[in-house]
Design a binder for these strands. Structure first.
Length: 335
DNA sequence: AACTGGCGCAACCGCCCACCA
DNA sequence: ATGGTGGGCGGTTGCGCCAGT
């Protein structure tokens, strides 16, 4: 019996998300929290597959996402982690806060794999050592199961240890622990990153959309107030659970921006406090830097990995050169 | 200025797993 | 024990952008 599609494909919109859709989704999630993705399209009116909504949220709209160029340090981490874990991007991402697995995967596929390939071409003879790197996909896939098995054993063991010593260990104090997705991301960058993304999208959209000049004032006011009020869309009297997001019509954006408003985190009423998760005062919803909850579970307490990360935490970034000597062979020559 | 090929990235697809009734 | 469902993950694709010609 084949599994039915996650959603009715008929009438489901595909392709790039519009700013309007983004805002609807963000508003909804801010109100209800992430999860129950199945209900998102029906509750928001989005003509999107539930999966698509989840993906859009986790890969793009989620708070705390850092976009743009990878730093050299991040790059090195990815290389090492990939060598150790294989293509377990979610696990790798758990060690790189603010980066999504999709981002890392893309970066690997577009930049790092190419670099390593090039390197391999330059140094054919040294590929033996490079067996831990991506250049040896066959070896990697071969050893991946063993690695994974080992990983799972460690995970189970660590989970047990953690369960037994609950509050004793503060993960934030442990430099070798992958950073939980829920961990506070300090400063104004928490929501700003995603808000900026939306802002950028909106502004691009504004540039491109001829419709935007036909906007009605009333709609813009509605939109702005909607954006400022997380309870928008559900109506003043309706309960959030049954609320249908009816916010952010495209007509609203033009005058919204023309009034000099910036699409800032404040618009979402998300406070930028160090002690994230934020509490939305309007509805009390804990707008956490959710995300990748499974990633924390999938943390990989490999001894070697932890050792390296520990050293890395101590030495980096000032002594990144020392990183080279960690014994992963080819990746050391990589730079 | 027009064309083209490569690149980067967002998004989709399909498989898998965990959970629940 | 079994089947259904939701969600997660990794691989892949498609499209827009940009540099080179």
């Amino acid at each position: 019996m084949g599994r039915p599609p996650c959603c009715d494909k008929i009438g489901v919109k595909k392709g790039p998300w519009t700013p309007e859709e983004d805002i609807i989704l963000v508003s909804y999630i801010q109100q209800h929290g992430p999860g129950n993705w199945r209900a998102v399209p029906s509750n928001t009116g989005l003509l999107r597959c539930s999966k698509s909504c989840r993906l859009r949220w986790t890969n793009y709209l989620r708070p705390g996402i850092k976009r743009g160029n990878f730093t050299e340090h991040e790059e090195k981490m990815i290389i090492h982690l990939q060598a150790l874990l294989g293509n377990r991007w979610a696990a790798i991402a758990s060690y790189l806060p603010q980066r999504t697995d999709n981002d890392i995967k893309n970066y690997w596929n577009t930049h790092l794999r190419k670099k390593l390939k090039k390197l391999q071409g330059n140094d054919e003879n040294s590929t033996q050592e490079g067996a831990t790197s991506s250049s040896s996909q066959s070896n990697l896939s071969k050893g991946q199961w063993e690695r994974r098995l080992q990983t799972d054993i460690h995970m189970a063991r660590k989970a047990l240890c953690e369960a037994l010593s609950l509050d004793k260990s503060d993960s934030s104090a442990n430099p070798i622990s992958p950073i939980p997705a829920q961990q506070p991301v300090t400063g104004s960058s928490t929501y700003a990153s995603s808000a900026e993304n939306i802002s950028r999208l909106l502004q691009n959209w504004m540039k491109d959309s001829p419709k935007s000049s036909e906007l009605s004032r009333s709609n813009s006011e509605t939109t702005q107030s909607s954006l400022n009020n997380p309870s928008i869309g559900s109506g003043s009297g309706s309960s959030p659970s049954e609320g249908t997001i009816s916010v952010a019509t495209p007509e609203g954006f033009d005058s919204f921006f023309s009034e000099g408003n910036a699409f800032t985190p404040e618009i979402f009423q998300v406070e930028s406090k160090p002690n994230f998760p934020n509490v939305n005062s309007e509805n009390g919803f804990l707008f956490q830097a959710e995300s990748k909850p499974s990633l924390e579970e999938s943390r990989v307490p490999l001894t070697l990995l932890e050792k390296w990360l520990f050293d890395e935490a101590i030495n980096a970034p000032a002594q990144e050169e020392e990183f080279m000597g960690m014994g992963l062979g080819e990746s050391a020559e990589f730079f």
